Amino acid sequence: MRPVIGYVGADVPVELITAAGAVPMRLAGRPGADRTLGEKYLGRGLDPAVRSLLSRLLAGEFGRLDGLVVSRDCEASLRLFYALRELRRVEPAVVLPPLHLVDVLHLPHRTTTRYVLAKVRQLRATLESWTGSVITDPALAEAITAHDRLRALLGEMAALRRRGRLSGTRALSIVARTTALPVVQAIELVESVLDEDHAPVPGRRVFLTGSGHDSPEVYEMLEEAGLLIVGEDHDWGDLLWHRRVGAPTELALAERYQHNGPSAPRASIRARAAHTAAAARECGAEALIAYAREHDDAPPWDYPAQREATGLPSVLLERQPYGGLTAEARTAIKELS
């Protein structure tokens, strides 16, 4: 049986996990589930998605993991790593996999590239020790090619959304499934979706910005209200696939993750606004929704510049519950739709 390596955050170079002969599984929370275990160690002042993820991990819901890679994509992920590392140290009765932190920086400098390349090489060595398999250059090249193929197919699926032939809810669910499958099976899944007949999907075309969505509940609520999510700029959606590696080398892999984004926690307000405006235009969006989960403080800072840059009718939904909408947000959505 192939080893399973869990990972948290889109800054983890999953190609290395595949090249090690393991299955990469992106971990996520679950809205509505009990978060008591996670809050015991993280408190209640952190993004509830991460508190839910830790609760699920401690409850054994992800099954047996042969390792866990956490990226420093945001403050919540970093605090999760520190909590897990301390738990392994002081509570040996708690069964946790070995841990590794990946710190990918996103500055546009060659010195940053060298730093990220060093982190990629550290992860490569860690995965070899966990799996007992040497990651050869040919294996890495094959993994890069396969994951780039998957990203290209997800881009084709995104084109279906832009043509109004696929709902945002279904697209998000499919993307999430690809993050917990071997890459070959993920490719087959997306190919099967692309082979379907796709009827037009009704709804006012909206672009979604702000917090990431690791489950479809919010998308379902928005689309049930008469909207159609044709694009987004979080890393469970379009930011996950839009940049490819391009060359089958370790350096190209480092550059892909260095330059991926721009995400709300790691990019400047100007960069976010420019990206959102360009992506919304490409999607043919008619409105902009900024969704900010409670204890996710970055998106509201981005919103004024995004609203100005897009020039679209827009609404900011602040301090939203994980996987849900407040009554005030539902009212605002009705006015927008």
Score class of each variant (00 low, 15 high):
51 R>L: 10
97 P>W: 03
296 D>E: 03
276 T>G: 07
87 L>P: 01
129 S>V: 08
182 P>R: 11
115 Y>I: 09
83 A>W: 08
160 L>K: 11
103 D>E: 15
262 P>F: 00
47 D>M: 12
11 D>M: 10
333 I>Y: 13
210 G>I: 00
143 A>S: 10
141 A>E: 02
12 V>C: 01
317 L>C: 05
133 S>I: 12
196 E>S: 09
171 A>W: 09
213 H>S: 09
93 A>K: 13
157 M>E: 14
222 L>S: 07
32 G>E: 00
81 F>M: 05
46 L>W: 09
145 T>F: 07
78 L>V: 14
280 A>Q: 05
314 S>H: 01
183 V>C: 00
270 R>F: 11
148 D>G: 05
106 H>F: 02
147 H>T: 15
63 G>Y: 02
115 Y>P: 10
182 P>L: 02
316 L>R: 02
172 L>P: 01
133 S>C: 13
14 V>D: 11
311 G>E: 07
167 S>M: 02
105 L>V: 13
337 S>K: 14
114 R>M: 13
79 R>V: 13
237 G>E: 07
36 T>N: 06
35 R>D: 02
54 L>Q: 06
127 L>V: 02
81 F>C: 01
83 A>T: 14
299 P>W: 00
207 F>H: 08
252 A>E: 10
260 N>T: 11
69 V>L: 07
57 L>T: 08
25 M>R: 15
328 E>V: 10
12 V>L: 01
317 L>Y: 08
45 G>A: 09
319 R>Q: 12
160 L>N: 10
108 P>T: 09
122 Q>C: 12
168 G>R: 00
221 M>S: 14
242 H>I: 12
278 A>D: 05
26 R>G: 02
227 L>V: 00
3 P>G: 06
139 A>Q: 02
208 L>N: 08
32 G>M: 04
35 R>P: 10
105 L>A: 15
94 V>T: 08
48 P>M: 10
334 K>T: 12
262 P>M: 04
39 E>K: 10
190 V>Q: 06
41 Y>H: 14
315 V>M: 04
58 L>N: 01
118 A>W: 08
266 R>Q: 13
223 E>Y: 05
139 A>F: 00
297 D>H: 15
298 A>D: 15
253 L>F: 06
239 L>K: 03
38 G>F: 08
283 C>M: 03
104 V>D: 04
69 V>A: 12
148 D>W: 00
121 R>F: 03
187 I>K: 04
211 S>F: 05
214 D>Y: 03
110 R>P: 11
178 T>N: 01
100 H>K: 10
207 F>M: 05
1 M>H: 15
147 H>K: 15
308 E>T: 13
96 L>T: 05
61 E>S: 11
29 G>K: 02
236 W>V: 12
288 L>Y: 04
132 G>F: 04
66 D>S: 12
262 P>V: 01
214 D>S: 15
174 I>R: 09
141 A>H: 03
98 P>D: 02
283 C>I: 02
112 T>V: 14
134 V>E: 14
282 E>L: 15
221 M>F: 09
324 G>S: 09
30 R>L: 11
